[in-house]
Structures are given as structure tokens and as C-alpha cells.
Design a protein around this nucleic acid. Structure first.
Lengths: 126, 126
DNA sequence: CTTGAGTTACGAATAAAATCGTAACACTAC
DNA sequence: GTAGTGTTACGATTTTATTCGTAACTCAAG
């Protein structure tokens, strides 16, 4: 049975590249590598290889029209974030969302962020 | 330079065992294995080995007084949860706690949990 | 003291993730 | 067409995580 693509959890290295793609939009390996290597010493072919693996896993799509393929995230940032957070809630918080939220908010959370969260809660039907 | 213990992130297998330890309190390999093998087909020595590795990493402490060593989580559930959630916030949510909370809450979140979160917010100074 | 059951320790095998060197390929400029 | 540059493809290596077989050790019962 084929694995449901939404169940594919990106590895750490993959998540790093997805972040770049969400931020930049579709990009070539070179563009992605340029961004990533600003903060990490990662070889060009390493980035390429990871993108190829992500393509096999359908974590990214790619446009092969031009010589330099253009990669794009297959799923939205929001979708992926939701799935990562659900995974963490089930594996480390006994399935409790409220427990997670309690741990997420601490002294380092800005008043502005707290306000955003308040507004989110107010906008809920429940 | 020695790695800061608070920076040690448990792997998935390790997190599974920590969950058992948090739930049961200090326990022997046999007790832990019994719980774990109820839901997964994991060998006794596999559990033992992982605990030994966790001990090297200082994720657990152990009492060697008796023949069957007694293992306990080195850090509290709360502490570990906080560090896992911070890690996720930084790696997948651009450092934004509010973004994480927004993604964490969805239609499957119960009214009760929403209430718990509301109370948490009300109790904040900010 | 000897045996057997239960335990830890150790190391090897396997699997998954990440890295990168090199070859092959494709396009552009000449 | 040829050379040179930039690209992808491929495979090997390394690293980390997981699994488990087997040997060594410990204790209690006889």
C-alpha cells in the first residue's frame, strides 16, 4: 500500500530546505544553496541530493523545463506545520493540545504574541 | 567542549521510553519493556540498549544498587516538553510561538482544551 | 559449590539520514 | 563542431539511530 503523502515527515535537513522554498518560492538548486550556505557549510551537491530525495518522496515538485530545474515545496507551509505539530502533540504531549500550548508560552514569549493568541481564541466559535 | 545536557534532544525511540518513565516513575528494564511491548514488537535487549545509550547521554539516571538497575528520567516531562517545543518553534515556525499555537488548534481540538488554554492566557500577567 | 534464571554488557548488523566526489550531460560562445 | 561552464545523476562514504544475538555476570535455591 502506498504511503499517504501527508504522512511523510520531513527530516531536519529537508525541513531546512523547505523553509527556504517557502520563503523564496520556487528556486533552483543554486539559489537554495546560496541561502543555506550563508548559515551552514553545506556542499552544493548535498543540497542537490536532498532535493532529489525530497522529489522522490513528493515533498517537492520540480519543473524540468530548463536545464537548471526549479524546485518548489509540494505542500504549503501551513499544512506541513500542522502535520509536524500534530506529530509532536501525539508523541510528546499525550495528545493534549492545551498541554502543548502551556509549554509553548513562557517568559520569553512577547506580549505581542500573547495578544495574537488571544485574538485567535476570541475568533473561535467554541 | 562538552555538550550541554539541556541541548540533548531525545530521538523517537528514546522519547517513547521517556514517556513510559514519566508515567511509571523509576522502573527496571523489564517493567519498561513490558509496557512498550504491549504496543510495539520491540526486543528486551533493544530497550536495554537504548536505556544504556540514554544513560551515556544523561537522558536518564540509574540506580545500580540492585542487580536489575532502576532507570529514571533525568529531566522532568515538563522540561523536556519545553525544549522539544522550542526546538520545533525555531525549526519550523520561524521562531513564532503564536504561529505555532494557531496551527496547533484546529477543528479537532475539544472545547474543553480551548477552555484550558483560555484560562492559561487569563492567568498571564501580560 | 553448582546450577539455572534473569540480568547487563558488548559488539555487530541493519537502517536511515546526510555528505560529497566524480562522471555524464546540456547549453552557450566561439 | 569544440571547449568551457554549469548542471544533474549516481554511487560511495560517513554518521546517527535502531535492533538484537550472544557472552558474561549475579544472585538465589538446592
Amino acid at each position: 500500500m502506498a504511503r499517504d503523502k501527508s504522512a511523510v515527515k520531513p527530516t531536519e535537513a529537508e525541513l531546512t530546505l523547505l523553509n527556504v522554498l517557502w520563503q523564496m518560492g520556487p528556486a533552483t538548486v543554486r539559489q537554495i544553496h546560496e541561502i543555506v550556505s550563508a548559515t551552514q557549510k553545506t556542499g552544493y551537491t548535498t543540497v542537490l541530493k536532498i532535493l532529489q530525495i525530497m522529489h522522490e518522496k513528493s515533498l517537492v515538485i520540480r519543473d524540468e523545463t530548463n536545464r537548471a530545474h526549479v524546485y518548489a515545496a509540494a505542500n504549503s507551509e501551513m499544512h506541513t506545520q500542522s502535520s509536524l505539530i500534530k506529530d509532536l502533540i501525539s508523541k510528546a504531549f499525550g495528545g493534549s493540545t492545551s498541554k502543548l500550548v502551556m509549554r509553548a508560552i513562557d517568559e520569553s514569549t512577547s506580549a505581542e504574541e500573547i495578544n495574537d493568541i488571544r485574538q485567535l481564541l476570541n475568533s473561535l466559535e467554541k
